[in-house]
């Protein structure tokens, strides 16, 4: 792939996906079939060989278009009914290294650096915490605070009080 210059109006990253790649995306969006040779099954749907399906998925993975092939656990069903969005004002020159450490904690599911919006919002590190109780989440918050130490000037934790909307990601198959 050529390094993208990101010209916004005409930029179409999907140009890098050919028609067969797109058919593979569409065929696997809902998940992999639970059969001993899932790639052979997908191949039979698309009139491809098993080798080609494996090679193309591997190439998509190498390019970062497939982030990983994996399961997504349902935190709530697994007893993680308390969750808090913890947010931290971390010194810019240390945020990347410390973010990686926070992201590696077993109870952190999502961890991102995002822009601040001072004065309302001084926080640049977001870490979603999951626990079985709010007390457990508060204990996790202390662990994160200990890792960040004096690199962190301020922090907060936002609990969700209501789910207002939740829809799955829908990619268009054009």
């Amino acid at each position: 792939m050529t390094p993208a210059a990101r010209p916004e109006p005409s930029h179409d990253p999907r140009a890098g996906l050919d028609r067969v790649d797109r058919s593979l995306v569409a065929a696997t969006q809902a998940g992999l079939p639970l059969v001993p040779r899932p790639y052979a099954t997908i191949a039979s749907w698309l009139n491809l060989s098993e080798e080609e399906v494996i090679a193309r998925l591997g190439a998509l993975q190498d390019r970062g278009i497939v982030r990983r092939i994996a399961i997504a656990p349902n935190h709530y069903a697994l007893g993680m009914t308390a969750n808090g969005m913890s947010v931290w004002d971390v010194a810019d020159d240390r945020a990347s290294a410390l973010g990686a450490q926070v992201g590696a904690l077993p109870f952190v599911t999502h961890c991102y650096l995002r822009p601040r919006a001072r004065p309302v919002w001084p926080y640049n590190l977001f870490a979603m915490l999951h626990g079985s109780t709010r007390e457990a989440v508060e204990a996790q918050r202390s662990q994160v605070a200990a890792i960040l130490g004096d690199a962190c000037a301020a922090h907060d934790i936002l609990y969700s009080t209501r789910i207002l909307k939740k829809t799955g990601l829908r990619l268009r198959d054009d």
């Binding site: 696997t28 992999l32 990983r68 997504a72 990601l169």
Partner: peptide, 22 residues
């Protein structure tokens, strides 16, 4: 199959990068 039936997993398969998809 059972974990999916029970709702312990929400998805099993490739995760696509939305930005890479355009």
């Amino acid at each position: 199959a059972r974990l999916r039936e029970l709702g312990a997993i929400t998805r099993f398969g490739p995760f696509f990068d939305a930005a890479a998809m355009g």
